[in-house]
């Protein structure tokens, strides 16, 4: 079974985020970029499908700038077979990204299209189900584990207050949460092999974004909190403040 995994290059989740001079983007200086952690779960899930089914290929797909080649190589080092970069140099909103991916995936023979549940960074949690809707195929979001049946994939979803078991016809788009997909580390052999794996590049099908970013700002810092040394009085004071000052109890 062929699997496509759509990934995104994002700032390291440890990175300190500063706003650049335009006021609508972040300052890239000194920021290390990584595969979005959720997308690593999706790659891991895709690799396990390949190992279990003993056949088929895992293809990576991303929309981004030339720098995203490095991100794709990192995914290839984990064990994916090939990669495609859809190059886009200017801002695209979630729908634009979904459209570019859908154009690429329309003629794909992948039975399974995997996404991380969201990109760490934009945190929109929308491109996966948008792609499925554009392609007119099934989609299950927030999948923590899945297995295959006859022409279907059965998915466990972690939703508010419980687990839902959902069956979807193939081909299907799944968005993956951590669940059981702790991602593997790339081995040295994998890193070497990744350099020779096929990586195609073409221009993304561009659509004008409908979302207009007015301004990016840093969060308002919380005033220095009221931090007390422990004592019976301190706890009583805390509870009083929570009720009377913060109106939280």
């Amino acid at each position: 079974m062929n699997v496509s995994v759509c990934i995104k290059r994002v700032p390291d989740t440890e990175a300190h985020i500063r706003i650049d001079q335009t006021g609508t983007d972040i300052d890239n200086g000194g920021i290390k970029y990584i595969i979005s952690p959720y997308d690593e779960f999706a790659i891991e899930a895709g690799l396990r499908v390949k190992e279990k089914m003993e056949g088929g290929e895992v293809s990576l797909l991303t929309v981004g700038t030339n720098e995203a080649q490095e991100t794709l190589r990192n995914g290839l080092a984990m064990g994916a077979d090939k990669a495609t970069l859809l190059r886009a140099d200017s801002y695209m909103d979630g729908l634009g990204t979904a459209k570019a991916l859908a154009v690429e995936l329309k003629d794909s023979d992948a039975q399974l299209i995997l996404f991380g549940v969201k990109a760490a960074g934009s945190d929109q949690q929308q491109v996966g189900p948008m792609v499925a809707t554009l392609l007119g195929i099934s989609c299950v979001t927030e999948v923590s584990s899945f297995e295959f049946g006859d022409g279907v994939v059965t998915c466990h979803r972690e939703i508010e207050g419980g687990i839902e078991v959902v069956e979807a016809d193939l081909p299907a788009v799944l968005t993956i949460t951590k669940g059981e997909y702790e991602p593997r580390y790339a081995s040295l052999k994998g890193i070497m092999a990744a350099k020779r794996k096929p990586l195609e590049e073409r221009e993304a099908d561009f659509s004008q974004p409908g979302i207009h970013i007015e301004r990016l700002s840093e969060p308002t810092t919380r005033g220095s909190g009221c931090i007390l040394e422990d004592s019976p009085d301190a706890v009583a004071e805390l509870v009083r403040l929570l009720r009377e000052e913060a109106n939280a109890l």
């Binding site: 700032p11 706003i19 409908g210 979302i211 970013i213 990016l216 840093e218 969060p219």
Partner: peptide, 19 residues
């Protein structure tokens, strides 16, 4: 004009939707 957290709440974006 809407505001939403990005970069895990390390920044906030203010945006409008033209459509």
């Amino acid at each position: 004009l809407f505001t939403r957290p990005v970069y895990s709440g390390k920044a906030f974006t203010k945006f409008s939707i033209d459509v």
